[in-house]
Amino acid sequence: MVIECKHVWDHISGYLDDSLSPETQELIQRHLEHCEICSAILDSTRNILVLTADDRVFELPVGFSDRLHARLAREIAGASGDPFKVSAD
């Protein structure tokens, strides 16, 4: 059975997560072996997701942690008595 490019594109995400059925996986694999366009789409998607996940994309602003812990310290110090009392069940 031959699968068309546009059907391969429907399975890119599943292919990357390795969550396709063995039959579909095999079908896509065989298509990729001879289709340079689908191979490039798959490679670029995988590459882009790796870059997206990098810590450097969304960096913490300078001083973020200090400001956060200072605020938490005020909250914790201000929480007198039983701060965790749940008002109702």
Binding site: K6, I12, A40, I41, S44, N47, L51
Partner: peptide
């Protein structure tokens, strides 16, 4: 509707 990818003929790893 289907979301279509950008069509490329080759991809050099970034």
């Amino acid at each position: 509707g289907q979301v279509l990818p950008a069509l490329l003929r080759d991809w050099r790893e970034v």
